[in-house]
Computed example of a mutant assay.
Amino acid sequence: MRAATLTAFGSPLEIQDVPDPETGTGEVLVEVLAACVLPYAAEIFSGARRYPLEPPVVPGVGGIGRIVRIGPDATRLRVGDLVWCDATVRSRDDALTPDITLQGWSSRGAGGARLARYLHDGPFAELMRVPTENVYPLPARAAADPARWSSMTVYSVPYGGLLAGGLEAGETVLVSGATGNFGSSAVAVALAMGAGQVVVPGRNRAVLDLLADGFGSRVRPVRLGGDEETDRAAMGAAAEGPIDLVLDLLPPEAPASATRAAAMTVREYGRVVLMGGVGTLGGADLALPYPWIMRNSVTIRGQWMFPRTANVGMIRLVASGALDLSRDRLTRFGLDQANDAVAHAAKHNGPFDRTVLTPGA
């Protein structure tokens, strides 16, 4: 098969012929039709983000494909099924605290790294080996445009955070980092899940206007100035009533003070979910005040990716039309253009910009 391989950090992807993956029991072989190229892929491949990825590796995260081969333990999947491939692979020998790897992308701890050495390669290839439990059948109509459905790679991350925060219909959500690629997607998902209001803070006036115009009066934009106390007051004032849930999706380069200002807008008994990259490349600690957390009974939760059940929920949101993928602006690249795709994704990283690799095109 043909694949785009990262041979070393800082080197371009090499488009080359490699052996087809061999599958065993508990695995399926998928023909990759479309894989979303995340905006920060170039930072990973250069080594700037210091991800625990071990070259040589076929990178990428998740994707849409057709099943080519199934194992003997699959009872409902069939060859030819159109499926969504979840990159979040969990070890099978610890149900309570499984080790996790993002296939072709990242891992957590020594156990995750060990798992990644086995399930090493991602979707920047014509074929991909995937654990049976990580493929999810899609509606037949998704076959008309698999590239558009590959946007679930982005939407599913904030969906996992909103599920972790226990979002209920009618509640008010504040999305910290709302003007970014993941944050703007969080706005769309929160509204699809029934949020009453979504407070969207940011410094980019054009993006704030885009979100407000695109989603209507349930979106409450807030222009940030950089002063923590002033910004906190402005975010709190934007909501008509208490803020029930804060979801942070700020990138690594954002200061911890921005996350703290947003988090401390949450109401008494409110919830804060941390999913962003603040502090991963160094910098000041978050430093939320102990008395404030304790006296206001605030729940603070970290969330990496999403539970397996979220895949089913995400597909339902899209299939029902509650989450509208038509607003996504797609730019498609063939496998031989993988390096162009990575460069394009880095430059086109705004709200609802999607760069898609189509190995099966």
Rank of each mutant, 00 (worst) to 15 (best):
L224D: 01
T172V: 13
T230E: 15
W149R: 09
G194Q: 08
I243D: 09
R260D: 09
L249W: 05
A195Q: 12
S257N: 00
D248E: 15
G160L: 04
G225C: 05
G216D: 07
L191V: 10
R271I: 05
R267A: 14
N204S: 13
S257K: 11
V199R: 00
G170S: 12
V175E: 06
A239H: 14
G202D: 09
R203I: 01
G216N: 13
L245S: 06
L250P: 00
L138T: 14
T265H: 08
E240Q: 14
P139N: 12
G194A: 12
E268L: 05
D231C: 08
G177A: 11
F182A: 11
P139M: 09
A206S: 15
A238Y: 08
R148L: 14
V246P: 09
L162G: 11
V173H: 08
R220A: 03
E168A: 14
E253M: 00
Y136D: 01
T153M: 13
E229S: 13
G214Y: 00
D209T: 13
A140F: 02
D145Y: 00
A164P: 01
A190M: 04
P146G: 04
R232W: 12
M193S: 02
A261M: 03
A144Q: 15
M264W: 10
A164N: 13
N181F: 07
G214T: 15
P252W: 01
A239V: 10
G161I: 09
A234T: 07
L138Y: 14
A212I: 00
P137K: 06
R271W: 00
R203L: 00
A233W: 02
Y159I: 02
T265E: 06
V198D: 08
V175P: 08
N204R: 15
V198A: 12
A206P: 03
G216T: 12
L211Q: 09
S217C: 00
L249A: 08
Q197Y: 14
A144S: 15
A195R: 08
R203V: 02
G166S: 02
S184G: 05
L247Q: 08
A258L: 12
V246G: 07
A190Q: 12
Y269M: 07
D213V: 03
V154H: 03
N204K: 12
E171W: 01
S151C: 15
D227I: 03
R205H: 08
V272D: 06
E228F: 00
V200G: 01
A147W: 05
R223M: 01
S176N: 15
V187R: 07
G183E: 14
T172R: 11
A239R: 11
V173W: 10
E171L: 04
G166I: 04
A190R: 10
A188W: 06
V187C: 11
A212L: 01
A254L: 04
V207H: 13
D145W: 02
G226Y: 05
R148Q: 10
V199C: 04
D244T: 03
V157F: 14
A254K: 01
P137Q: 09
E240M: 02
G236I: 02
L249P: 10
M152N: 10
D227T: 14
V219T: 11
L167Y: 14
G196S: 06
A254R: 03
P255V: 06
V200L: 02
A239N: 06
A169L: 05
W149N: 12
M235S: 08
G236D: 01
